[in-house]
């Protein structure tokens, strides 16, 4: 039985869309993203295989922050600055899917209205569809599509809850964490890991009194973080973090645009730093390692499912379970199957 990952067929429909995208057709770009959102890795595979050689050129900025931090407005300002330089910008705005209904409300476009009709800007709203890690696999594929489409900059903007920060880090070259001033104790609530993934801290809404206080808190936290031992959970992050880059803290006002040009300068200097120190390549290696893990997990799960449900041999194992004897419990049987499985795949 051939593993589904090996098939290299491509639907004509998908191929045509890619051809159109190559000619700059924006609707084709949009439809390709819909395909990776709805079709799962079986569809994504066809697309990524075809476009991969055309990717690797975009600069990817991750932006995260708690709801109400003003990150969408700031994203719009950053995009505006880059648009002024004549660059092609794509934005992926990720919002959470409701765990109750499976639906989602995606309201980020409204804050980007001033740039709506600029043809150099492409905004795509995505629901994370409840996948672990906030940034769904589809987002990573959408990044590749925007990359192949020829975006100079891709901004991935997502709500800052838990795992998604780590996910942004996996996908972005430069990660911004946005914080509003004076929301009380949330700085304590931020996991130690945040300093590890952040390249630039932005304290937005600088017109508020508490902005300076928040900047000081962050600086203090960074001072401490430089000396602490790595958190076990995040050890894999630490390995690739260069000690030389201390995340700068900058105040902005996303509504008025104050300090946004200065923020762009910081982003650019981090970009330069990453390139010269090799950080960029480390990050890329990290990103693709995880991407590969995601892909393998997906297809292996599918293979396992197929094995369990269609392989007649399995029925013998199931019969053993049904005997209710010592050593025939579902765990012991699964261990035996897994052993056979590893032999097939990894020996």
């Amino acid at each position: 039985m051939e593993s589904s990952i090996k098939s290299s067929k491509i639907d004509l429909d998908i191929y045509n869309l890619i051809e159109k995208m190559r000619k700059g057709d924006r609707r084709a770009v949009a439809r390709l993203i819909t395909k990776v959102e709805n079709g799962g890795p079986e569809v994504s595979k066809q697309i990524i295989k075809e476009i991969y050689p055309e990717t690797g050129k975009s600069f990817i900025i991750g932006i995260t922050g708690s709801p109400g931090s003003g990150k969408s407005t700031l994203t719009n300002q950053i995009a505006s600055e880059y648009l002024k330089k004549g660059l092609k910008i794509s934005i992926i705005a990720v919002d959470p899917t409701s765990p109750f209904s499976g639906g989602a409300l995606l309201g980020d476009r409204i804050r980007m209205k001033s740039n709506f009709t600029n043809k150099n800007l492409f905004i795509r709203s995505m629901a994370n569809r409840g996948k672990l890690g906030g940034l769904a696999m589809a987002t990573k594929e959408a990044i590749h599509i925007f990359d192949a489409y020829g975006s100079d900059i891709i901004i991935v903007e997502t709500v800052g809850v838990g795992q998604s920060e780590i996910d942004i880090f996996k996908s972005a070259h430069t990660t911004l964490v946005i914080m509003p001033p004076g929301m009380g104790d949330e700085i304590q609530a931020i996991k130690a890991g945040i300093t590890e993934i952040t390249d630039i801290f932005v304290v937005n809404k600088m017109d508020r009194n508490e902005a300076d206080k928040r900047v000081n808190e962050l600086e203090t936290m960074l001072d401490i973080a430089e000396n602490i031992v790595v958190d076990q959970k995040n050890h894999n992050i630490r390995i690739i973090k260069s000690n030389k880059w201390r995340p700068p803290v900058i105040k902005t006002n996303a509504i008025s645009g104050e300090n946004v040009p200065e923020l762009i300068e910081l982003i650019e200097s981090h970009r330069e730093f990453s390139k010269t120190t090799g950080l960029k390549n480390k990050k890329l290696a990290y990103r693709y390692k995880h991407y590969v893990v995601d892909i393998i997990q997906y297809f292996q799960n599918k293979d396992i499912e197929r094995l369990i449900f269609s392989n007649p041999k399995i029925n013998e194992f199931i019969d053993q379970i049904l005997s209710y004897k010592t050593g025939s419990d579902p765990y012991s049987i699964s261990e035996m199957i897994l052993e056979l499985f590893s032999k097939r795949y990894f020996s």
Binding site: T73, G107, R111, I255, S256
Partner: peptide, 10 residues
């Protein structure tokens, strides 16, 4: 005076 834009709340 510039123009005000709101965040949308549902």
């Amino acid at each position: 005076f510039t123009v005000y834009r709101e965040e949308s709340i549902f």
